[in-house]
Design a protein around this nucleic acid. Structure first.
Lengths: 245, 245
DNA sequence: CGTCACCTTGAGTATTGTCAACTCGGGTGG
DNA sequence: CCACCCGAGTTGACAATACTCAAGGTGACG
């Protein structure tokens, strides 16, 4: 196989043709400028399940756009235990928490929950580009700000909502965000373990498990391993004390 | 009193002479460019205790640098109750969570916890300036990213640490961040109510109160109303399961 | 000096965590 | 191809941390 073939294989999808285009960065870029973004992006080989995208403490170099698969980010706390800070699905950007860190290193570890393909976006290059493309700069500010907003909602959930509500809210969030993946309506994949879910929501994994069975008994969802179907979406929204989505 | 006098009074401290300069935005700006930032900043009249800096849902126009006093931000959740998302002290920036909000409105309400003076920084102007000053752009990305990092730590705290640890960690954080205010070493002002603290940490206000008394009985702190002294800092760090700061 | 927040303290309860046993399912090696 | 094994998930019993409800105290301000 020639070198050229390999190059083509690794870069097959350019931003201009990417199905996630409307979600990801290109949203903010004029078509005529898209090549400039395309040029700085490296399309890495797919990560296997359990593979590390980056590791807490290693030098910060890039943020990553997820093309397929799923990522969890986690930090190790001073007290030594792990905190799952977020789950990221296709079209979302990982690594925004590590910009301008005092030590210029990643503030969290990103682990692939299943086979995952990402676009690496070197941050210095992205910053330079943002200086020349106002809409890109604006979009980046917006992305980071929405990351803050999202974290605040999780804080709220984890801080004072009962366990059932936390789980219901996560399921809805995954369902909404997962729409891009060509899944049947109301089907949700749970690429993460019960333990990851519990950790992220501030619950014991046993509690998560119990709530899944309870929801199932009440006819709200159907769970089988990592496959989940939302049977009664309205009821699930009530359980999450959220408005219909 | 002449118009000129009023103008001078309202703008008395320029960025170049501001004591918080090394904390706030100017950090990122060459001295020669400082005037440009100075020009877009509006120094508002001080807010009284309880005054609103901005209100959730009202149109987003500016972020605010705190000069003196203290601010809490909170959101009203779909379920109707209030969530205190953060406390902000002099030198810190409020409003970064509302950039690029879908509805272009503030995502939270900012309330003065005591008489508070702020610098209003209109966001569109700040963005334009950031396009021309790469260090400013970089600093802004860093600021937002550190807001994310901070929220994640709170998530961790609120999600799985026992009540004592949450309170200890907050006290240490306030103490470190409050150093700029010319307070005696180890003295902390608590401009917020017990209820605000509890709300923010995901605890009932009674729990906060109980923990204060317990810490006091153990000789770790002294509390009297809103004045607090850290007597045994090392012990407090242990209680927060954090490293010495 | 009285009133009104805010704070403190107490008693009882309940949600959720911990510990432990058991089951299920996927993958590997015989 | 089947059996075994190991990690992940489920279920149950019990314990504990923190909440709720309730009553009393303190300080600031008019």
């Amino acid at each position: 196989m020639s070198v050229r073939h390999i190059a083509i294989r690794l870069r097959e999808t350019h931003c201009a043709e990417c199905a996630l285009n409307p979600l990801c960065l290109p949203l903010a870029i004029e078509e005529s400028d898209l090549d400039q973004l395309d040029d700085i992006i490296a399309r890495n080989q797919p990560l296997p399940r359990g593979g590390l995208l980056f590791h807490q403490g290693s030098p910060f170099s890039a943020v990553y756009a997820i093309r397929s698969g799923a990522i969890k980010t986690c930090t190790v706390t001073p007290s030594g235990d792990e905190q799952v800070t977020g789950f990221y699905l296709p079209g979302e950007i990982v690594g925004l928490d590590s910009i301008g860190n005092a030590s210029n290193s990643y503030d969290s570890t990103a682990v692939a929950l299943e086979a995952t393909a990402v676009c690496a976006i070197p941050f210095p290059a992205l910053e330079s580009l943002a200086l020349r493309l106002p809409r890109l700069q604006h979009h980046l500010f917006g992305l980071m700000s929405s990351e803050i907003r999202n974290d605040r909602q999780v804080m709220q959930l984890v801080g004072k909502r009962p366990a059932e509500e936390r789980v219901a809210a996560l399921l809805l969030s995954l369902s909404v965000r997962g729409k891009r993946q060509r899944l049947p309506e109301n089907h949700v994949r749970l690429p993460m373990s019960r333990s990851d879910i519990g950790n992220h929501l501030g619950l014991a994994l046993e509690t998560v498990s119990r709530i899944f069975t309870r929801f199932q008994q009440q006819g709200v969802i159907t769970v089988r391993g990592k496959e989940l179907v939302i049977v009664d979406r309205a009821r699930l929204c009530e359980l999450a004390e959220a408005r219909e989505r």
